[in-house]
């Protein structure tokens, strides 16, 4: 178990966002977290990445208690994340955005008088990451001027550039057109392999993506875990599907669509 949450709860005033949630991620797993809006998915990610401190329970990374440790500390420990609403550095170029992550990883941030432009090591590594994410043609573009899809990739690319042990992606394909979603997921999977990121946890709404790529699916509703298992197991769980899709009647429709998609891909 590389990352685990044990009985974590989180309240926003009276409202309970997470109630007694326990999950565990093994090294090498690709885990998706699904659920309707308000289920607590993003809150879970925020607690796991140190953005929020849980009101109860423990969060362990490689056995160490990391509950409430800030994102800065966690990133040095090997946990990185991307954001649902894209987070970029608006005025920085694409390559410089990636360089920030590499500088941080190589602990070069406090070098006041070294020339950034002449640091070949940082430059080459940034180039590598950029190429993996298909950003090699846009290196000098200012981030704020790029289309949404590129910004999304950049957000993820800079997190990848940290070479984390586990990366948590909050809706990595949201805001991206359906035809591009698979492309992006393929890029993520390939990049993970190349960089050596073994473990991925993602929050995702697109069921096609979820069922195609995940080793394990965790379904949540109203702050609780509904189901936690392989795609095959979760697929058959009527309650989960109806909750996620929203209507009991759509269970049949759901199965039909899933089998149709599988035929198409075959």
């Amino acid at each position: 178990m590389i990352l685990e949450a044990i009985n974590i709860s989180k309240y926003y005033g009276e409202f309970c966002a997470l109630k007694d949630v326990s999950i565990g991620i093994d090294e090498g797993e690709f885990v998706s977290v699904i659920g309707p809006n308000g289920a607590g998915k993003t809150t879970l990610i925020n607690v796991l990445t140190g953005f929020l401190k849980p009101d109860a329970g423990q969060v362990n990374f490689r056995g160490k208690d990391i509950a409430g440790k800030g994102p800065e500390e966690l990133s040095t420990m090997g946990i990185a994340r991307s954001f649902q609403l894209v987070h970029i550095f608006p005025e920085l170029s694409l390559i410089n955005t990636i360089k920030v992550a590499i500088i941080s990883r190589q602990a070069k941030g406090m070098r006041l008088f070294a020339s950034l432009a002449r640091d070949k090591e940082v430059h080459e590594q940034a180039l590598e990451v950029a190429e993996l994410f298909g950003l090699a043609d846009l290196l000098e573009e200012t981030a704020k001027n790029c289309p949404q899809g590129i910004k999304k990739l950049l957000d993820v690319a800079s997190a990848f550039a940290l070479h984390p042990e586990i990366i948590l992606l909050d809706e990595p394909t949201s805001g991206v057109s359906t035809s591009d979603k698979n492309k992006i997921m393929q890029v993520l999977v390939d990049a993970s392999k190349k960089i050596g990121i073994k473990t991925v946890l993602q929050v995702e709404h697109d069921m096609d993506i979820v069922f195609s790529y995940s080793d394990r699916i965790i379904a949540m509703q109203q702050g609780k875990v509904l189901a936690d298992g392989s795609p095959a197991e979760v697929e058959k769980n009527e309650e989960v599907i109806c909750t996620v899709v929203g209507q009991k009647e759509c269970f049949q429709t759901f199965n039909r669509i899933m089998s149709m998609n599988r035929e198409e891909r075959a």
């Binding site: 990445t49 410089n96 070069k108 940290l162």
Partner: peptide, 28 residues
């Protein structure tokens, strides 16, 4: 030299998006 150093770049990242910078390991 300072503003064109790795330190300078990290400063601008904090300027542009402190949350993101923190997530990249920069102690703002």
């Amino acid at each position: 030299r300072i503003v064109h150093s790795p330190f300078g770049l990290c400063l601008t990242s904090i300027r542009d998006n402190p949350d993101k910078a923190e997530y990249l390991g920069i102690g703002i």
